[in-house]
Amino acid sequence: MTVQQLIASMNLTVFHLTDSQRAVTGGYVGDLLSWVMGRAGQDCAWLTIMSNQNVAAVALMADVSCVVLTEGVQPDEDLLRRAKEKSVTLLGTPLDTFTAACKLGQALN
């Protein structure tokens, strides 16, 4: 599925959209940044409650398709700026992380 399809399917908030046609091939949930770097797969949707600007750098290096801030977390100003600078797609949902992960799993199937 594409990022655009994921946004529609999960009714996600768009904070910054870089490439709506980029493929999403999996998901990863995590807040410890080095753990995410080590385990998240390329082209996955990364669900997290972390909202500092290091999230954009990790998303860029790990080459994920998009970041989804869960639990209604809003990106801080610096994260939004960094996401724009680094061309990282930043999305959000008011859903708790577990429910969001379940919906992502359903959408991917």
Binding site: D31, L32, L33, S34, G38, N54, V55
Partner: peptide
């Protein structure tokens, strides 16, 4: 607090 310090830095470099 920023999400680092998980003890994965060097292991990730090796991985």
């Amino acid at each position: 607090e920023l999400g680092f310090g998980a003890g994965m830095g060097l292991p990730n470099m090796k991985r």
